[in-house]
Design a protein around this nucleic acid. Structure first.
Length: 499
RNA sequence: GGGUUGUUAGCUCAGCUGGUAGAGCAGCGGACUCUUAAUCCGUAGGUCGACAGUUCGAAUCUGUCACAACCCA
Protein backbone atom coordinates (compact mmCIF):
# COMPACT_ATOMS: atom_id res chain seq x y z
CA UNK A 1 0.00 0.00 0.00
CA UNK A 2 1.56 3.25 -1.07
CA UNK A 3 0.39 6.73 -1.85
CA UNK A 4 3.56 7.52 -3.73
CA UNK A 5 2.77 8.74 -7.19
CA UNK A 6 4.76 7.58 -10.12
CA UNK A 7 4.45 9.95 -13.03
CA UNK A 8 2.75 8.12 -15.86
CA UNK A 9 2.86 8.73 -19.54
CA UNK A 10 -0.53 8.16 -21.07
CA UNK A 11 -0.66 8.23 -24.78
CA UNK A 12 -4.41 8.10 -24.42
CA UNK A 13 -5.78 11.57 -23.96
CA UNK A 14 -8.88 10.46 -22.05
CA UNK A 15 -6.89 8.52 -19.48
CA UNK A 16 -4.43 11.37 -19.12
CA UNK A 17 -7.22 13.81 -18.40
CA UNK A 18 -8.80 11.51 -15.85
CA UNK A 19 -5.44 10.95 -14.21
CA UNK A 20 -5.09 14.70 -13.86
CA UNK A 21 -8.51 14.80 -12.19
CA UNK A 22 -7.35 12.09 -9.79
CA UNK A 23 -4.19 14.04 -9.01
CA UNK A 24 -6.37 17.03 -8.11
CA UNK A 25 -8.46 14.79 -5.84
CA UNK A 26 -5.32 13.62 -4.05
CA UNK A 27 -4.35 17.29 -3.53
CA UNK A 28 -7.74 18.04 -2.05
CA UNK A 29 -7.73 15.19 0.50
CA UNK A 30 -8.65 11.52 0.55
CA UNK A 31 -8.96 10.46 -3.07
CA UNK A 32 -10.44 7.01 -2.36
CA UNK A 33 -12.70 7.47 0.67
CA UNK A 34 -14.31 4.41 2.25
CA UNK A 35 -16.54 6.04 4.84
CA UNK A 36 -19.69 6.50 2.74
CA UNK A 37 -22.50 4.44 4.21
CA UNK A 38 -24.67 3.03 1.45
CA UNK A 39 -28.11 2.29 2.91
CA UNK A 40 -30.28 1.42 -0.10
CA UNK A 41 -30.17 -0.62 -3.27
CA UNK A 42 -31.73 0.70 -6.45
CA UNK A 43 -34.03 -2.26 -7.02
CA UNK A 44 -35.31 -2.18 -3.43
CA UNK A 45 -36.24 1.48 -3.79
CA UNK A 46 -38.03 0.81 -7.07
CA UNK A 47 -40.05 -2.05 -5.65
CA UNK A 48 -40.94 -0.08 -2.54
CA UNK A 49 -41.70 3.33 -4.06
CA UNK A 50 -42.40 3.04 -7.79
CA UNK A 51 -46.10 2.65 -7.03
CA UNK A 52 -46.31 5.84 -4.98
CA UNK A 53 -47.51 9.02 -6.66
CA UNK A 54 -45.55 12.25 -6.87
CA UNK A 55 -47.55 13.83 -4.08
CA UNK A 56 -47.43 10.79 -1.81
CA UNK A 57 -43.64 10.74 -2.14
CA UNK A 58 -43.37 14.46 -1.40
CA UNK A 59 -45.42 13.93 1.73
CA UNK A 60 -43.36 10.94 2.83
CA UNK A 61 -39.94 12.68 2.46
CA UNK A 62 -38.02 9.39 2.15
CA UNK A 63 -34.32 9.92 2.88
CA UNK A 64 -31.99 7.54 1.07
CA UNK A 65 -28.28 6.89 0.57
CA UNK A 66 -27.35 5.07 -2.63
CA UNK A 67 -24.05 4.31 -4.28
CA UNK A 68 -22.97 2.95 -7.61
CA UNK A 69 -21.26 3.49 -10.90
CA UNK A 70 -22.37 6.48 -12.99
CA UNK A 71 -23.58 5.05 -16.31
CA UNK A 72 -25.37 8.06 -17.80
CA UNK A 73 -24.99 11.79 -17.25
CA UNK A 74 -27.11 14.62 -18.58
CA UNK A 75 -26.02 18.13 -17.66
CA UNK A 76 -28.41 21.02 -18.31
CA UNK A 77 -26.79 24.11 -16.91
CA UNK A 78 -28.12 24.60 -13.41
CA UNK A 79 -29.46 21.06 -13.02
CA UNK A 80 -28.31 17.58 -14.03
CA UNK A 81 -29.48 14.00 -14.15
CA UNK A 82 -27.26 11.00 -13.63
CA UNK A 83 -28.01 7.29 -13.65
CA UNK A 84 -26.08 5.13 -11.22
CA UNK A 85 -25.91 1.36 -11.28
CA UNK A 86 -25.44 -0.91 -8.28
CA UNK A 87 -25.61 -4.69 -7.89
CA UNK A 88 -29.39 -4.61 -8.02
CA UNK A 89 -30.07 -2.21 -10.88
CA UNK A 90 -30.17 1.48 -11.69
CA UNK A 91 -31.60 4.61 -10.17
CA UNK A 92 -31.62 8.20 -11.39
CA UNK A 93 -30.08 11.08 -9.46
CA UNK A 94 -31.18 14.70 -9.79
CA UNK A 95 -28.48 17.23 -8.92
CA UNK A 96 -29.16 20.94 -9.03
CA UNK A 97 -27.73 24.25 -7.83
CA UNK A 98 -30.85 24.64 -5.72
CA UNK A 99 -30.34 21.38 -3.80
CA UNK A 100 -26.55 21.06 -3.48
CA UNK A 101 -25.33 24.58 -4.13
CA UNK A 102 -23.63 25.74 -7.28
CA UNK A 103 -20.12 24.65 -6.25
CA UNK A 104 -21.05 21.02 -5.62
CA UNK A 105 -23.02 20.88 -8.84
CA UNK A 106 -20.11 22.33 -10.80
CA UNK A 107 -17.84 19.69 -9.25
CA UNK A 108 -20.28 17.01 -10.35
CA UNK A 109 -20.09 18.28 -13.93
CA UNK A 110 -16.48 17.11 -14.04
CA UNK A 111 -17.25 13.62 -12.84
CA UNK A 112 -16.90 11.03 -15.59
CA UNK A 113 -19.01 8.12 -16.74
CA UNK A 114 -17.72 5.10 -14.88
CA UNK A 115 -16.95 6.97 -11.65
CA UNK A 116 -18.32 5.45 -8.45
CA UNK A 117 -20.56 7.89 -6.60
CA UNK A 118 -22.26 7.99 -3.24
CA UNK A 119 -25.42 10.10 -3.10
CA UNK A 120 -27.78 11.01 -0.29
CA UNK A 121 -31.04 12.82 -0.66
CA UNK A 122 -34.79 12.45 -0.81
CA UNK A 123 -36.87 10.36 -3.18
CA UNK A 124 -39.13 12.13 -5.67
CA UNK A 125 -40.81 11.57 -8.99
CA UNK A 126 -39.88 13.46 -12.12
CA UNK A 127 -42.39 14.91 -14.57
CA UNK A 128 -42.28 11.66 -16.50
CA UNK A 129 -42.87 9.68 -13.31
CA UNK A 130 -39.43 8.19 -12.86
CA UNK A 131 -38.41 7.51 -9.28
CA UNK A 132 -35.29 9.57 -8.60
CA UNK A 133 -33.13 10.86 -5.78
CA UNK A 134 -33.13 14.62 -5.25
CA UNK A 135 -29.50 14.79 -4.20
CA UNK A 136 -28.39 16.92 -1.30
CA UNK A 137 -25.03 15.23 -0.69
CA UNK A 138 -22.84 13.82 -3.44
CA UNK A 139 -19.39 12.25 -3.15
CA UNK A 140 -16.96 10.78 -5.62
CA UNK A 141 -15.95 7.49 -4.00
CA UNK A 142 -13.76 5.99 -6.73
CA UNK A 143 -12.35 7.79 -9.75
CA UNK A 144 -12.43 5.67 -12.92
CA UNK A 145 -9.36 6.31 -15.02
CA UNK A 146 -10.46 4.28 -18.01
CA UNK A 147 -13.49 5.26 -20.09
CA UNK A 148 -16.42 2.88 -20.39
CA UNK A 149 -17.45 1.44 -23.75
CA UNK A 150 -19.99 3.29 -25.80
CA UNK A 151 -23.04 3.84 -23.62
CA UNK A 152 -25.65 2.49 -25.99
CA UNK A 153 -24.01 -0.54 -27.58
CA UNK A 154 -21.77 -1.46 -24.66
CA UNK A 155 -19.00 -3.95 -25.28
CA UNK A 156 -19.99 -6.15 -28.22
CA UNK A 157 -16.70 -7.66 -29.33
CA UNK A 158 -16.87 -11.28 -28.11
CA UNK A 159 -13.15 -11.46 -27.45
CA UNK A 160 -13.17 -8.32 -25.34
CA UNK A 161 -16.24 -9.55 -23.46
CA UNK A 162 -14.32 -12.68 -22.46
CA UNK A 163 -10.96 -11.09 -21.83
CA UNK A 164 -12.33 -8.06 -19.96
CA UNK A 165 -15.27 -9.64 -18.20
CA UNK A 166 -15.33 -6.82 -15.63
CA UNK A 167 -16.13 -4.34 -18.42
CA UNK A 168 -18.66 -6.73 -19.93
CA UNK A 169 -20.38 -7.04 -16.54
CA UNK A 170 -20.51 -3.27 -16.08
CA UNK A 171 -22.09 -2.58 -19.42
CA UNK A 172 -24.08 -5.67 -20.33
CA UNK A 173 -27.26 -6.55 -18.48
CA UNK A 174 -27.52 -9.91 -20.29
CA UNK A 175 -24.10 -10.94 -19.03
CA UNK A 176 -25.01 -10.06 -15.46
CA UNK A 177 -28.25 -12.03 -15.81
CA UNK A 178 -26.43 -15.10 -17.12
CA UNK A 179 -24.15 -15.29 -14.12
CA UNK A 180 -26.96 -14.62 -11.67
CA UNK A 181 -28.77 -17.59 -13.21
CA UNK A 182 -25.62 -19.67 -12.96
CA UNK A 183 -25.45 -18.95 -9.25
CA UNK A 184 -29.12 -19.82 -8.82
CA UNK A 185 -28.72 -23.08 -10.73
CA UNK A 186 -25.96 -24.22 -8.43
CA UNK A 187 -27.96 -23.14 -5.41
CA UNK A 188 -31.04 -25.06 -6.62
CA UNK A 189 -28.97 -28.19 -7.26
CA UNK A 190 -27.43 -27.96 -3.81
CA UNK A 191 -30.87 -27.57 -2.22
CA UNK A 192 -32.16 -30.60 -4.10
CA UNK A 193 -29.38 -32.83 -2.85
CA UNK A 194 -29.54 -31.46 0.67
CA UNK A 195 -33.24 -32.25 0.78
CA UNK A 196 -32.42 -35.82 -0.27
CA UNK A 197 -30.03 -36.10 2.69
CA UNK A 198 -26.84 -36.00 0.67
CA UNK A 199 -23.55 -34.91 2.21
CA UNK A 200 -21.53 -32.33 0.27
CA UNK A 201 -17.84 -33.22 0.19
CA UNK A 202 -14.58 -32.06 -1.33
CA UNK A 203 -12.07 -34.53 -2.71
CA UNK A 204 -8.57 -33.88 -4.08
CA UNK A 205 -8.04 -31.73 -7.15
CA UNK A 206 -4.46 -33.02 -7.42
CA UNK A 207 -4.17 -36.69 -8.15
CA UNK A 208 -1.12 -38.91 -8.29
CA UNK A 209 -3.09 -41.18 -10.64
CA UNK A 210 -5.72 -39.40 -12.74
CA UNK A 211 -8.89 -41.45 -12.82
CA UNK A 212 -12.64 -41.52 -13.18
CA UNK A 213 -12.83 -40.56 -16.84
CA UNK A 214 -11.23 -41.11 -20.20
CA UNK A 215 -9.37 -37.89 -20.89
CA UNK A 216 -5.91 -36.35 -21.17
CA UNK A 217 -4.83 -34.80 -17.87
CA UNK A 218 -2.81 -31.69 -17.06
CA UNK A 219 0.50 -32.62 -15.50
CA UNK A 220 2.21 -30.73 -12.70
CA UNK A 221 4.96 -31.39 -10.22
CA UNK A 222 5.05 -31.42 -6.45
CA UNK A 223 8.45 -30.17 -5.32
CA UNK A 224 8.56 -31.40 -1.72
CA UNK A 225 7.44 -34.89 -2.66
CA UNK A 226 9.37 -34.68 -5.93
CA UNK A 227 6.60 -36.39 -7.78
CA UNK A 228 4.51 -35.87 -10.85
CA UNK A 229 0.90 -35.00 -10.14
CA UNK A 230 -2.17 -34.50 -12.28
CA UNK A 231 -5.04 -32.06 -12.07
CA UNK A 232 -8.08 -34.22 -11.68
CA UNK A 233 -10.12 -35.23 -14.70
CA UNK A 234 -12.96 -36.45 -12.44
CA UNK A 235 -13.58 -37.01 -8.72
CA UNK A 236 -15.31 -40.37 -9.26
CA UNK A 237 -12.83 -42.78 -7.67
CA UNK A 238 -12.52 -40.66 -4.52
CA UNK A 239 -16.25 -40.26 -4.14
CA UNK A 240 -16.74 -44.02 -4.37
CA UNK A 241 -14.05 -44.52 -1.72
CA UNK A 242 -16.30 -42.37 0.48
CA UNK A 243 -19.24 -44.68 -0.19
CA UNK A 244 -17.00 -47.60 0.83
CA UNK A 245 -16.38 -45.56 3.99
CA UNK A 246 -20.07 -45.45 4.75
CA UNK A 247 -20.99 -42.04 3.33
CA UNK A 248 -23.91 -43.52 1.45
CA UNK A 249 -25.09 -40.33 -0.24
CA UNK A 250 -22.42 -37.87 -1.31
CA UNK A 251 -22.04 -35.15 -3.89
CA UNK A 252 -19.35 -32.74 -4.97
CA UNK A 253 -19.67 -29.63 -7.14
CA UNK A 254 -16.27 -28.64 -8.38
CA UNK A 255 -13.87 -28.17 -11.25
CA UNK A 256 -12.43 -30.86 -13.48
CA UNK A 257 -9.51 -30.28 -15.82
CA UNK A 258 -9.03 -31.90 -19.20
CA UNK A 259 -6.09 -31.19 -21.43
CA UNK A 260 -8.01 -31.07 -24.67
CA UNK A 261 -9.09 -28.56 -27.29
CA UNK A 262 -11.11 -25.41 -26.73
CA UNK A 263 -14.46 -24.98 -28.44
CA UNK A 264 -17.90 -23.56 -27.91
CA UNK A 265 -18.62 -26.72 -25.88
CA UNK A 266 -15.26 -27.29 -24.18
CA UNK A 267 -13.25 -25.30 -21.68
CA UNK A 268 -10.15 -26.96 -20.18
CA UNK A 269 -11.53 -26.41 -16.70
CA UNK A 270 -15.23 -26.98 -16.25
CA UNK A 271 -17.65 -27.55 -13.42
CA UNK A 272 -19.37 -30.85 -12.69
CA UNK A 273 -21.56 -32.21 -10.03
CA UNK A 274 -20.89 -35.83 -9.28
CA UNK A 275 -23.08 -37.72 -6.86
CA UNK A 276 -23.30 -41.27 -5.52
CA UNK A 277 -26.05 -43.03 -3.69
CA UNK A 278 -25.80 -46.53 -2.20
CA UNK A 279 -28.53 -49.14 -2.77
CA UNK A 280 -29.69 -47.53 -6.00
CA UNK A 281 -29.23 -48.44 -9.66
CA UNK A 282 -29.06 -46.60 -12.96
CA UNK A 283 -32.81 -46.79 -13.53
CA UNK A 284 -33.44 -44.99 -10.27
CA UNK A 285 -30.86 -42.41 -11.33
CA UNK A 286 -32.70 -41.65 -14.56
CA UNK A 287 -35.93 -40.88 -12.69
CA UNK A 288 -33.98 -38.90 -10.09
CA UNK A 289 -32.25 -36.90 -12.85
CA UNK A 290 -35.55 -35.98 -14.49
CA UNK A 291 -36.82 -34.70 -11.15
CA UNK A 292 -33.64 -32.71 -10.58
CA UNK A 293 -33.74 -31.01 -13.97
CA UNK A 294 -37.41 -30.15 -13.60
CA UNK A 295 -36.92 -28.69 -10.16
CA UNK A 296 -33.88 -26.62 -11.15
CA UNK A 297 -35.60 -25.21 -14.25
CA UNK A 298 -38.71 -24.42 -12.30
CA UNK A 299 -36.84 -22.69 -9.47
CA UNK A 300 -34.56 -20.72 -11.72
CA UNK A 301 -36.77 -19.91 -14.72
CA UNK A 302 -40.22 -20.45 -13.28
CA UNK A 303 -41.02 -22.90 -16.07
CA UNK A 304 -39.84 -26.25 -17.40
CA UNK A 305 -40.12 -25.07 -21.00
CA UNK A 306 -36.65 -24.41 -22.34
CA UNK A 307 -36.07 -22.23 -25.35
CA UNK A 308 -32.65 -22.84 -26.80
CA UNK A 309 -31.30 -21.08 -29.89
CA UNK A 310 -34.74 -20.73 -31.40
CA UNK A 311 -36.04 -24.22 -30.55
CA UNK A 312 -38.14 -25.30 -27.61
CA UNK A 313 -38.54 -28.38 -25.49
CA UNK A 314 -40.20 -29.16 -22.18
CA UNK A 315 -38.28 -30.70 -19.30
CA UNK A 316 -41.71 -31.46 -17.82
CA UNK A 317 -42.26 -34.18 -20.43
CA UNK A 318 -40.81 -37.64 -19.74
CA UNK A 319 -37.28 -37.87 -21.17
CA UNK A 320 -36.83 -40.29 -24.08
CA UNK A 321 -34.99 -43.53 -23.38
CA UNK A 322 -33.29 -45.36 -26.25
CA UNK A 323 -30.48 -47.87 -26.65
CA UNK A 324 -27.53 -46.85 -28.79
CA UNK A 325 -28.85 -48.97 -31.68
CA UNK A 326 -32.43 -47.69 -31.30
CA UNK A 327 -31.20 -44.11 -31.39
CA UNK A 328 -29.26 -44.72 -34.59
CA UNK A 329 -32.30 -46.33 -36.21
CA UNK A 330 -34.69 -43.62 -35.05
CA UNK A 331 -32.72 -40.93 -36.81
CA UNK A 332 -31.22 -43.08 -39.57
CA UNK A 333 -33.83 -45.69 -40.50
CA UNK A 334 -31.71 -46.77 -43.45
CA UNK A 335 -29.71 -48.99 -41.10
CA UNK A 336 -31.23 -52.43 -40.58
CA UNK A 337 -30.92 -54.49 -37.42
CA UNK A 338 -28.73 -56.94 -39.25
CA UNK A 339 -26.40 -54.19 -40.48
CA UNK A 340 -26.01 -52.73 -36.99
CA UNK A 341 -24.98 -56.18 -35.79
CA UNK A 342 -22.47 -56.75 -38.58
CA UNK A 343 -18.90 -55.79 -37.62
CA UNK A 344 -17.65 -55.54 -41.20
CA UNK A 345 -20.59 -53.38 -42.21
CA UNK A 346 -20.06 -51.01 -39.26
CA UNK A 347 -16.35 -50.68 -39.93
CA UNK A 348 -17.01 -49.96 -43.61
CA UNK A 349 -19.59 -47.35 -42.72
CA UNK A 350 -17.28 -45.68 -40.17
CA UNK A 351 -14.48 -45.58 -42.71
CA UNK A 352 -16.78 -44.03 -45.32
CA UNK A 353 -17.75 -41.36 -42.76
CA UNK A 354 -14.09 -40.83 -41.83
CA UNK A 355 -15.22 -41.33 -38.24
CA UNK A 356 -12.96 -42.12 -35.32
CA UNK A 357 -13.25 -45.66 -33.98
CA UNK A 358 -11.15 -48.29 -32.26
CA UNK A 359 -10.48 -51.18 -34.61
CA UNK A 360 -10.34 -53.64 -31.70
CA UNK A 361 -13.84 -52.72 -30.52
CA UNK A 362 -16.69 -55.16 -30.53
CA UNK A 363 -20.15 -54.51 -31.94
CA UNK A 364 -21.15 -52.26 -29.06
CA UNK A 365 -18.09 -50.02 -29.35
CA UNK A 366 -18.52 -49.73 -33.12
CA UNK A 367 -22.21 -48.93 -32.77
CA UNK A 368 -21.26 -46.26 -30.24
CA UNK A 369 -18.77 -44.71 -32.64
CA UNK A 370 -21.44 -44.62 -35.34
CA UNK A 371 -23.88 -43.10 -32.86
CA UNK A 372 -21.38 -40.41 -31.88
CA UNK A 373 -20.71 -39.64 -35.53
CA UNK A 374 -24.26 -39.56 -36.82
CA UNK A 375 -26.88 -39.38 -34.13
CA UNK A 376 -25.64 -37.68 -31.00
CA UNK A 377 -25.92 -34.12 -32.32
CA UNK A 378 -29.51 -34.74 -33.41
CA UNK A 379 -30.80 -35.54 -29.93
CA UNK A 380 -32.43 -32.20 -29.25
CA UNK A 381 -35.08 -33.25 -26.74
CA UNK A 382 -33.91 -34.79 -23.46
CA UNK A 383 -32.89 -38.36 -24.26
CA UNK A 384 -31.25 -41.04 -22.15
CA UNK A 385 -29.10 -43.35 -24.24
CA UNK A 386 -28.69 -46.68 -22.48
CA UNK A 387 -26.88 -50.03 -22.87
CA UNK A 388 -23.37 -48.68 -23.26
CA UNK A 389 -20.80 -51.30 -24.20
CA UNK A 390 -18.58 -52.51 -21.36
CA UNK A 391 -15.40 -51.78 -23.31
CA UNK A 392 -16.27 -48.08 -23.32
CA UNK A 393 -17.40 -48.05 -19.69
CA UNK A 394 -14.58 -49.34 -17.49
CA UNK A 395 -16.15 -48.19 -14.21
CA UNK A 396 -19.74 -49.32 -14.82
CA UNK A 397 -21.46 -52.49 -13.66
CA UNK A 398 -22.17 -55.11 -16.29
CA UNK A 399 -25.69 -56.15 -17.14
CA UNK A 400 -26.52 -59.46 -15.47
CA UNK A 401 -28.20 -60.78 -18.61
CA UNK A 402 -25.85 -59.32 -21.23
CA UNK A 403 -22.34 -58.95 -19.80
CA UNK A 404 -21.08 -57.13 -22.92
CA UNK A 405 -23.15 -54.09 -21.98
CA UNK A 406 -23.29 -52.02 -18.79
CA UNK A 407 -26.04 -50.52 -16.68
CA UNK A 408 -25.17 -47.07 -17.91
CA UNK A 409 -26.79 -44.05 -19.55
CA UNK A 410 -25.78 -40.76 -20.97
CA UNK A 411 -28.25 -37.89 -21.11
CA UNK A 412 -28.36 -35.71 -24.21
CA UNK A 413 -30.12 -32.39 -24.78
CA UNK A 414 -29.80 -29.97 -27.70
CA UNK A 415 -27.37 -32.40 -29.28
CA UNK A 416 -24.95 -32.35 -26.37
CA UNK A 417 -23.97 -34.73 -23.62
CA UNK A 418 -25.22 -33.27 -20.36
CA UNK A 419 -24.90 -36.15 -17.93
CA UNK A 420 -23.41 -39.60 -17.57
CA UNK A 421 -24.47 -42.12 -14.95
CA UNK A 422 -24.41 -45.78 -14.12
CA UNK A 423 -24.75 -48.54 -11.63
CA UNK A 424 -21.26 -48.66 -10.19
CA UNK A 425 -18.94 -51.58 -10.74
CA UNK A 426 -18.40 -52.87 -7.22
CA UNK A 427 -16.78 -56.21 -8.12
CA UNK A 428 -13.07 -55.58 -7.37
CA UNK A 429 -11.89 -58.45 -9.53
CA UNK A 430 -13.87 -57.33 -12.56
CA UNK A 431 -12.63 -53.77 -11.92
CA UNK A 432 -9.04 -54.94 -11.91
CA UNK A 433 -9.56 -56.79 -15.19
CA UNK A 434 -11.12 -53.67 -16.74
CA UNK A 435 -8.22 -51.50 -15.59
CA UNK A 436 -5.82 -54.02 -17.10
CA UNK A 437 -7.68 -53.77 -20.41
CA UNK A 438 -7.37 -49.97 -20.23
CA UNK A 439 -3.63 -50.22 -19.57
CA UNK A 440 -3.32 -52.45 -22.62
CA UNK A 441 -5.25 -49.90 -24.70
CA UNK A 442 -3.02 -47.11 -23.42
CA UNK A 443 0.07 -49.11 -24.37
CA UNK A 444 -1.48 -49.60 -27.81
CA UNK A 445 -1.62 -45.80 -28.19
CA UNK A 446 -4.99 -44.75 -26.76
CA UNK A 447 -3.99 -41.54 -24.94
CA UNK A 448 -7.37 -41.28 -23.25
CA UNK A 449 -7.38 -44.78 -21.79
CA UNK A 450 -7.47 -44.95 -18.00
CA UNK A 451 -4.61 -45.56 -15.63
CA UNK A 452 -4.76 -48.51 -13.26
CA UNK A 453 -5.46 -47.38 -9.72
CA UNK A 454 -4.53 -50.24 -7.40
CA UNK A 455 -5.38 -48.22 -4.32
CA UNK A 456 -8.92 -47.84 -5.64
CA UNK A 457 -9.17 -51.60 -6.23
CA UNK A 458 -8.00 -52.16 -2.68
CA UNK A 459 -10.79 -49.83 -1.51
CA UNK A 460 -13.31 -51.88 -3.50
CA UNK A 461 -11.96 -54.99 -1.79
CA UNK A 462 -13.33 -53.63 1.48
CA UNK A 463 -16.73 -53.74 -0.17
CA UNK A 464 -18.60 -51.03 -2.07
CA UNK A 465 -22.33 -51.50 -1.53
CA UNK A 466 -24.46 -51.58 -4.67
CA UNK A 467 -24.33 -47.94 -5.71
CA UNK A 468 -25.44 -45.66 -8.50
CA UNK A 469 -23.51 -42.55 -9.49
CA UNK A 470 -23.71 -39.74 -12.00
CA UNK A 471 -21.95 -36.65 -13.24
CA UNK A 472 -23.73 -33.61 -14.68
CA UNK A 473 -21.96 -30.85 -16.57
CA UNK A 474 -22.96 -27.64 -14.85
CA UNK A 475 -21.65 -25.33 -17.56
CA UNK A 476 -23.66 -27.06 -20.26
CA UNK A 477 -26.74 -27.04 -18.06
CA UNK A 478 -26.33 -23.31 -17.52
CA UNK A 479 -25.92 -22.84 -21.29
CA UNK A 480 -29.33 -24.47 -21.72
CA UNK A 481 -31.03 -22.38 -19.07
CA UNK A 482 -29.52 -19.09 -20.28
CA UNK A 483 -29.86 -19.82 -23.99
CA UNK A 484 -26.11 -19.33 -24.41
CA UNK A 485 -24.50 -20.57 -27.63
CA UNK A 486 -20.98 -20.93 -26.19
CA UNK A 487 -19.61 -22.41 -22.96
CA UNK A 488 -17.51 -19.23 -22.74
CA UNK A 489 -20.70 -17.28 -22.19
CA UNK A 490 -21.36 -19.11 -18.92
CA UNK A 491 -17.80 -19.17 -17.53
CA UNK A 492 -16.76 -15.85 -16.00
CA UNK A 493 -13.17 -16.08 -17.15
CA UNK A 494 -12.97 -18.61 -19.97
CA UNK A 495 -9.61 -19.89 -21.10
CA UNK A 496 -8.18 -17.72 -23.88
CA UNK A 497 -4.95 -17.79 -25.80
CA UNK A 498 -2.62 -15.08 -24.47
CA UNK A 499 -2.85 -11.96 -26.59
C1' G B 1 -6.66 -29.78 -37.88
C1' G B 2 -9.89 -27.49 -42.20
C1' G B 3 -13.08 -23.49 -43.98
C1' U B 4 -15.46 -18.59 -43.68
C1' U B 5 -15.32 -13.79 -41.69
C1' G B 6 -13.11 -10.07 -38.90
C1' U B 7 -8.96 -6.82 -36.64
C1' U B 8 -9.48 1.35 -38.55
C1' A B 9 -9.85 6.80 -32.36
C1' G B 10 -11.17 4.57 -25.40
C1' C B 11 -16.13 2.23 -27.45
C1' U B 12 -19.74 1.27 -31.76
C1' C B 13 -18.85 1.50 -36.80
C1' A B 14 -18.11 3.87 -42.17
C1' G B 15 -14.21 4.21 -45.65
C1' C B 16 -16.54 2.28 -53.48
C1' U B 17 -12.55 0.01 -59.08
C1' G B 18 -5.35 2.08 -54.86
C1' G B 19 -4.47 8.95 -54.45
C1' U B 20 -2.15 9.77 -47.81
C1' A B 21 -8.47 9.08 -42.34
C1' G B 22 -14.43 9.78 -41.30
C1' A B 23 -19.08 9.70 -38.14
C1' G B 24 -21.67 8.84 -33.50
C1' C B 25 -20.75 8.04 -28.35
C1' A B 26 -17.02 9.04 -24.63
C1' G B 27 -13.35 13.57 -23.70
C1' C B 28 -12.29 19.00 -23.50
C1' G B 29 -14.59 24.32 -23.84
C1' G B 30 -19.39 26.87 -24.12
C1' A B 31 -25.27 27.30 -23.86
C1' C B 32 -29.33 25.09 -21.24
C1' U B 33 -33.39 23.69 -13.97
C1' C B 34 -37.44 17.55 -15.70
C1' U B 35 -33.53 14.79 -18.84
C1' U B 36 -34.07 9.32 -20.47
C1' A B 37 -28.75 6.88 -25.80
C1' A B 38 -30.90 14.62 -23.56
C1' U B 39 -30.16 18.60 -27.22
C1' C B 40 -27.25 22.60 -29.63
C1' C B 41 -22.34 25.18 -30.92
C1' G B 42 -17.06 24.68 -30.94
C1' U B 43 -12.60 21.57 -30.25
C1' A B 44 -8.99 17.73 -29.74
C1' G B 45 -8.01 12.68 -30.57
C1' G B 46 -5.06 7.55 -35.46
C1' U B 47 2.09 3.56 -36.63
C1' C B 48 -5.65 1.64 -40.11
C1' G B 49 -3.42 -6.10 -35.88
C1' A B 50 2.18 -7.27 -37.30
C1' C B 51 5.82 -8.08 -41.13
C1' A B 52 7.07 -8.49 -46.15
C1' G B 53 5.76 -7.66 -51.37
C1' U B 54 3.44 -5.18 -55.87
C1' U B 55 3.11 0.16 -57.08
C1' C B 56 5.14 6.80 -58.39
C1' G B 57 1.66 6.02 -54.31
C1' A B 58 -1.43 0.83 -49.94
C1' A B 59 -6.40 1.14 -44.55
C1' U B 60 -7.66 -0.61 -49.63
C1' C B 61 -4.22 -5.42 -53.86
C1' U B 62 -0.92 -10.10 -52.78
C1' G B 63 1.66 -13.28 -49.29
C1' U B 64 3.12 -14.81 -44.35
C1' C B 65 2.17 -14.47 -39.24
C1' A B 66 -0.80 -13.26 -34.68
C1' C B 67 -5.43 -13.10 -32.26
C1' A B 68 -10.68 -13.73 -32.37
C1' A B 69 -15.77 -15.09 -33.81
C1' C B 70 -18.62 -18.62 -36.45
C1' C B 71 -19.06 -23.32 -39.06
C1' C B 72 -16.99 -28.26 -39.94
C1' A B 73 -13.94 -32.50 -38.07
Amino acid sequence: MTTEQTPQQDDNQIIAERRAKLAALRQAGVAFPNDFERKHLAADLHSAYDAMSHDELEAAQVSVAVAGRMMLKRVMGKASFATVQDMSGRIQLFISNGDTGEEAHNTFKHYDLGDILGASGVLFKTKTGELSVRVTGLRLLTKALRPLPEKFHGLTDQEQKYRQRHVDLITNEETRKTFIIRSKVIQAIREFFMRHDYLEVETPMMHSIPGGASAKPFVTHHNALDMQMYLRIAPELYLKRLVVGGMEKVFEINRNFRNEGLSTRHNPEFTMIEFYEAYRDYKYLMDFTEKLFREVAHKVLGTTVISYQGREFDLGQPFHRLTVAQAIQKYHPQFSDAQLHDRDFLINELQDLKAKYRSGDGLGGLQLSLFEELTEHQLFEPTFIIDYPAEASPLARRSDTRPEITERFELFMVGREIANGFSELNDPEDQEARFDAQVAAKEAGDEEAMFKDSDYISALEYGLPPTAGEGIGIDRLVMLLTDSPSIRDVILFPQMRPE
